[in-house]
């Protein structure tokens, strides 16, 4: 994702004072990350092969039971599939929402471009919990949507189905993660040389053809990057399902949360955590490869830019 033209870093044979300076620079963060990040991940992996006593305390006895439990109980598989379904829906909707807005700001807006762009990225950093909460008061049984519908005489009794449904989770998540998709999609649109759009029109393509055959393919790396964000973030989300989905619509992260909380089965929780981790890593690898293969378009663009 490093698109800035990197200054060529020169590498030197290092003399002793320089090597000392390097140790001073690199050891503290490296040790910190080792102790507080790498070892915990490693511990989680090991824990997934350990047993537990009747009180749920982890004991140092290697066993495959947690993994067997994970693969034999259908609950985990079905929850995983359900989570994928939600994540896919959220991703599709986020992309669908992002493309027109990003396109509009990138290609149609001139004067207030900066302001509009800030408007789409500011929500990225605005409190997660508060945005989830907003949907709770809107969609609730006694919420603003229901009272509005009754006030407007569209319904006479509160609609129960708004909150604590699958759709509430999806709407909440789409709302929270759309800005994550908007940003890379917008950046991709912005980087398309306007001359390519003009060339397409010059060659007789209409606006729709130009969009689908020139603009969209060139912005695919951005769409893929954004879509990956939305998908991965949804997989790891355990708050929205609880807040907006109630108790019936649990996702895979809620399973992890419960196994480390009320159910207190840490080895099995570790298994689910590792599975989640593997899924995410595999996904990131695949999409970054896909991004790169589409970025061949980008390298062509680079040559074009260089010739100018």
């Amino acid at each position: 994702m490093d698109t800035a033209p990197a200054a060529k870093a020169t590498v030197h044979t290092q003399n002793p004072p320089k090597r000392r300076a390097l140790l001073f620079l690199v050891l503290p963060p490296a040790l910190w990350l080792l102790c507080f990040l790498v070892l915990p991940y490693l511990g989680l992996f090991i824990q997934s092969f350990l047993g537990s006593d009747d009180l749920g305390n982890v004991v140092l006895e290697p066993t495959l039971d947690p993994w067997k439990a994970f693969f034999t109980k259908t609950l985990y598989r079905s929850t995983l599939l359900y989570t994928f379904k939600i994540a896919l829906t959220v991703t599709s909707l986020s992309v669908l929402f992002s493309v027109p807005l990003a396109y509009f700001i990138a290609f149609k807006v001139r004067r207030w471009k900066e302001l509009l762009y800030s408007l789409i990225i500011v929500p990225l950093w605005v409190s997660y919990i508060v945005r989830a909460y907003a949907w709770k008061i809107i969609l609730g049984r006694e919420g603003i949507l229901n009272s509005f519908l009754q006030w407007a005489k569209i319904t006479d009794a509160p609609v129960e189905a708004f909150l604590y449904s699958e759709w509430a989770i999806v709407i909440g998540l789409v709302h929270i993660y759309t800005p994550f998709v908007l940003m890379p999609v917008y950046t991709a649109f912005e980087q398309i040389p306007r001359s390519l759009v003009e060339a397409s029109k010059d060659l007789g393509a209409g606006r729709l053809t130009t969009f689908f055959r020139v603009v969209l393919p060139l912005s695919l790396p951005g769409v893929i990057a954004g879509g990956t964000f939305a998908f991965v973030l949804t997989l790891g989300d355990f708050l929205a399902p609880v807040l907006l989905g109630g108790t019936d619509n649990l996702m895979i992260s809620n399973v992890v949360q419960n196994l480390f909380g009320t159910s207190n089965d840490r080895p099995l929780g570790s298994v689910v955590g590792i599975v989640l981790l593997v899924v995410v890593v595999a996904l990131l690898e695949t999409t970054s490869r896909a991004e790169k293969s589409f970025a061949s378009l980008e390298s062509g663009r680079g040559r074009l830019g260089g010739a100018r």
């Binding site: 507080f36 511990g43 989680l44 982890v58 790891g236 992890v256 929780g269 955590g273 995410v280």
Partner: peptide
Amino acid sequence: RIVLLPLTLPGIVTGVAMLSFF
């Protein structure tokens, strides 16, 4: 690659890993 882990991996996995290890 390690540096990027906390940014790319789900926070919940990092959370339970730390909870177990700390």
